[in-house]
């Protein structure tokens, strides 16, 4: 029997709720790469990220009865949230989220970067810069930048104080700005 392909997010989510395997596969093919990117950005390790992706999708497919469609983008946002939560959970369990590793030669100021500088850097390279951040810096940076959490919320999530959160974000930015500048400079040579 041929099954009609779900053509929008709402229909896709509804078919996934009904445990339609074909719809599940479509959903996976559409979003798994992005979800893996999120996991990579948080844990900085491909093997662990793949495990989290696997577990995350199992969670997604078995939790569709809890999902309510609230407009375009809500499905991806819901899935992203699951992946972020799993990643944070993993980091907390491994006591990595609150780590603050001092990096030698950390600049006192954040180098000025332009939109052109950032756009110039390939996504993979930018991802690598983030992945190489110490876990504590990386976690705060991700939550602040991508999840748009406040330092108060981040502090509550990670069990640290707000000042630590702010400090780690500052350090993360300093490291990233430095590496972006270096990359651009090296490319110009």
């Amino acid at each position: 029997m041929n099954a009609r392909m779900p053509i929008n997010e709402q229909e896709l989510s509804e078919r996934c709720r009904q445990q339609d395997n074909h719809a599940r596969k479509v959903l996976y093919e559409l979003y798994a790469g992005q979800m893996l990117g999120i996991c990579m950005r948080y844990v900085g390790n491909r093997e662990i990220a793949e495990d989290l992706l696997h577990d995350g999708f199992l969670k997604i497919f078995t939790s569709f009865d809890k999902f309510t469609y609230r407009g375009a983008g809500s499905l991806k946002a819901w899935m992203s949230r699951i992946m972020v939560n799993l990643s944070i959970e993993y980091l907390r369990k491994n006591d990595a989220a609150g780590q603050s590793v001092e990096i030698e030669e950390l600049p006192d100021t954040i180098a000025d970067t332009t939109e052109e500088d950032i756009a110039f850097i390939p996504q993979e390279v930018l991802m690598k810069f983030i992945e190489e951040l110490p876990a504590g810096y990386r976690t705060v940076f991700n939550l602040y930048t991508f999840e748009e959490k406040s330092h108060k919320e981040i502090a509550a999530m990670l069990g640290i104080n707000e000042r630590t959160s702010a400090s780690q974000l500052f350090r993360a930015k300093a490291v990233l700005a430095k590496r972006i500048k270096e990359y651009v400079r090296d490319a110009d040579r």
Binding site: K59, G73, S74, R81, L86, E89, K93
Partner: peptide
């Protein structure tokens, strides 16, 4: 997007 997501299962 408005998503309500409960605490996830332990790290998988």
């Amino acid at each position: 997007a408005s998503v309500v997501q409960k605490r996830n299962q332990p790290s998988g």
